[in-house]
């Protein structure tokens, strides 16, 4: 169990999808399919729907907030987000879309959590539990 900071309230669980690269949601993620479309990204072609998406922070155009809200509307959003330290685009998108978001864990989540780990995010209690497969 690792402690962090609650950014967007709620509790979610699922399989982790982890990247050490920042994500630009606008022009980087397809809101209809929930797939990473930025060809230069290491998650290119992967689906983020229902996953616990672990990445350092968002970047790029602030219109990315709308993309996060569209993901939630289209039911293609991740189950929760874990950031090293979140940014304005990801934080606001998650709050308005109702996606649970936690950041500032005691350890770097992009190194600690492996893709495929089963992860429970309890943003309300500001904790993350990792159940390694």
């Amino acid at each position: 169990m690792i402690k962090g900071r609650k950014v967007s309230k709620g509790r979610g669980a699922g399989e982790a999808l982890v990247t050490t690269q920042t994500i630009s949601f606008l022009a980087g993620v397809d809101p209809d399919r929930g797939v990473v479309i930025d060809r230069a990204h290491e998650l290119s072609g992967q689906c983020i729907t229902g996953k616990i998406l672990v990445f350092p922070r968002g970047k790029g155009s602030t219109g990315g907030t709308w993309i996060i809200m569209r993901l939630a509307d289209n039911k293609t959003a991740p189950a929760a987000i874990i950031n090293i330290e979140t940014d304005l685009i990801t934080a606001i998108g998650s709050i308005l879309a109702g996606i649970f978001l936690i950041d500032k864990l005691d350890e770097d989540p992009t190194l600690l959590i492996k893709t495929g780990d089963y992860v429970i995010v309890d943003a309300d209690e500001s904790i993350v539990k990792i159940l390694t497969q």
Partner: peptide, 8 residues
């Protein structure tokens, strides 16, 4: 950018 989600 905002799509139908933005309108709603």
């Amino acid at each position: 950018s905002s799509g139908d989600t933005g309108i709603r």
